[in-house]
């Protein structure tokens, strides 16, 4: 009884923790980008201040907006939050780990994305429509690649449940796994596309005809915008911790751990998240955004990587050992 209470507490801590650090991670990315451009950049806590400011402001809603437009930000935030809370971050074996299935995560994020696209089209502005259509194009290309990556991991570890995949990868003897390396590349490409990061979309601007994510949320303001921004920041943390969980899981607390070891796991996680955010910032300043019609080729690359990863997993018998 007491044990399960501890596990539940750990789960709650994780739920709160991911929301608390999400704006900070985005702040780190922005700061790193600014420093690379020899600007001073906003302080790392700026996204928090922005969110507070937005939450206080009045929400301006178009006359012809339906209930969908008003409800979507909360639902999107809820879906993303559940998904982010399920990814094993600082410890394995928390209360709801049995639900942390990669396929479930993909479904949760897909639901959030569908809502966002619907809300983008709800007002009937052309920007919202074009953003929604592009978002859906990117999604139809990114999701097959994502599922291929999931299949590679499932073939290697024998399960699609994240905690078990992670513990398998920690415990397995060291090996040069070609299939996992390719799967990592594919996953990185998918993560960049899903988070509207630079080669696919530019998160820092409103004034480009090529924008995707920003075009959909252009009509939102006030607390609705705060919810959507926070959901996007959570999604970034989610993908970073997914990459950490699947491809660099060392230093995570084991299933039957005490709060002290959890604290240690949380510290390593925090360091890894910050390192990931810094790498993302460096990546974003070093390349240019590509044309929207080049994106299919970019994501097709992810699909090819993931497909070869699966073939290699079969070929070399890494599967189902």
């Amino acid at each position: 009884m007491r044990e399960s209470l501890v596990l539940l507490a750990g789960q709650l801590v994780q739920m709160v923790l991911v929301v608390l650090i999400a704006p900070g991670i985005t702040g780190v990315v922005r700061r790193v980008k600014a420093r690379f451009m020899r600007r001073r950049g906003a302080p790392i806590i700026q996204p928090y201040l922005d969110l507070i400011k937005l939450a206080r402001k009045e929400s301006v809603i178009a006359e012809n907006a339906s209930w969908l437009f008003r409800g979507a930000p909360y639902a999107i935030f809820a879906f993303t939050w559940v998904a982010a809370a399920l990814v094993p971050t600082f410890a394995a074996g928390l209360m709801f780990n049995w639900a942390a299935d990669v396929v479930a995560l993909v479904a949760l994020l897909g639901a959030a994305r569908a809502l966002l696209a619907l809300a983008g089209m709800d007002i009937g502005t052309s920007f919202g429509g074009i953003g929604a259509s592009r978002e859906m194009m990117i999604a139809t290309l990114a999701e097959p690649a994502m599922l291929m990556v999931v299949l590679t991991l499932a073939l290697t570890a024998g399960t699609t449940r994240l905690p078990e995949v992670a513990s398998f990868l920690i415990s397995a003897p060291f090996a040069v796994r070609a299939s996992l390396a390719l799967a990592l590349f594919a996953f990185l490409i998918v993560a960049l596309a899903e988070n509207a990061r630079i080669p696919v979309d530019n998160p820092a601007t409103h004034l480009e005809l090529t924008m995707v994510h920003e075009a959909m949320v252009l009509e939102y303001s006030g607390r609705h915008l705060a919810m959507i921004e926070l959901a996007a920041q959570l999604k970034l943390v989610l993908y970073l911790s997914l990459i950490i969980c699947l491809f660099a899981p060392f230093g995570k607390a084991a299933a039957e751990a005490s709060p002290l070891i959890w604290a240690l796991g949380a510290t390593t996680l925090f360091l890894k998240l910050v390192a990931g955010a810094m790498m993302l910032g460096a990546w974003e300043v070093s390349i240019a955004k590509m044309r929207v019609f080049r994106v299919p080729e970019f994501l097709g690359g992810a699909f090819v990587f993931a497909f070869i990863a699966i073939l290699l997993a079969f070929l070399t018998g890494e599967a189902l050992q």
Binding site: A175, V176, R177, A178, A181, L182, I308, L312, L315, T316
Partner: peptide, 8 residues
């Protein structure tokens, strides 16, 4: 593993 990796 390394030679498989290179072939891949």
């Amino acid at each position: 593993e390394v030679s498989r990796f290179l072939a891949g």
